[in-house]
């Protein structure tokens, strides 16, 4: 298996990085390329850019941002938020993204996953699942779907998803630890990589998640200070997590 990955997540809106707690109360925290570069220098294995505004008007702005990131950074990155069609996804990959993440659009029309996989390859298709109490929510965590998170992850895999980005809405922004039970249930159910998301507060939390999932998404734990990623990596190595040598 490849080495466990640390993936800082940058929520973007209007071309800037923002952060909210429990999907609400957005505030601005920086420039996407500068912050991405700081994370890359500090040893990020990948980045995720999530367009949390995801309006139609913002599409060209997002593609432009993706192109700037691809030109500046030498690590892989995923772009998600409001990807609704093959054309959206193709434009983002064309602009330099390595993977696209789909969420609500795939819940609305699951065939989209297969179409994306045959056009772009499974390795470029991340299905993002936001779950609370084991149930999948759509529209940035606001709308219950009645679907079970584990069975949706399994369906996404069978339709061609290359990775599952699993966010626990219950844990997101709390810094009280990842939802290990949910993460384990999904990781056991699929044979594609799983990225655990939501709730990282300490190095121990991240180490626990990486025992189960192949990667850990990092948001509030590193956002205020990209240098925190550097110290976090050192702490994780101290805990025996075999991270890559990023030099």
């Amino acid at each position: 298996m490849p080495l466990p990955r640390l993936i800082p997540c940058l929520d973007v809106a209007g071309g800037r990085v923002v952060k909210g707690v429990r999907f609400q109360g957005l505030r601005e925290v920086g420039d996407p390329v500068e912050l991405g570069g700081a994370y890359s220098d500090a040893g990020a294995d990948e980045l995720v850019y999530l367009d949390v505004a995801a309006t139609v008007e913002e599409r060209p702005l997002l593609a432009e941002l993706v192109a700037r990131v691809a030109d500046a950074l030498a690590i892989p990155f995923t772009v998600g938020g409001g990807v609704r069609s093959l054309a959206d996804a193709e434009a983002l990959l064309r602009a330099g993204a390595d993977k696209i993440a789909v969420n609500s659009a795939a819940l609305q029309r699951p065939e989209l996953i297969g179409e994306l996989a045959s056009l772009l390859g499974s390795q470029a298709v991340v299905v993002a699942i936001d779950a609370a109490g084991g149930q999948v929510f759509s529209r940035a965590g606001t709308t219950p779907t009645g679907r079970d998170a584990v069975s949706w992850a399994r369906e996404a895999e069978s339709r061609g998803a290359g990775e599952i980005l699993l966010t626990s809405i219950d844990a997101d922004g709390t810094r009280a630890g990842y939802d290990l039970e949910l993460t384990r249930a999904v990781a056991d159910a699929v044979s594609i990589p799983v990225i655990a998301s939501g709730g990282a507060g300490t190095a121990t939390h991240v180490a626990e998640a990486l025992e189960i999932a192949q990667a850990a998404l990092l948001a509030s734990i590193v956002h205020e200070d990209p240098e925190r990623l550097r110290s976090l990596r050192a702490e994780l190595r101290g805990l025996g997590v075999p991270l890559r040598d990023a030099a």
Partner: peptide, 18 residues
Amino acid sequence: RVPRIGWARVEPGGDAFY
């Protein structure tokens, strides 16, 4: 797990690549 995604060491050399 397939796709195989992530950084892995390449031998000889030992550097990790994506």
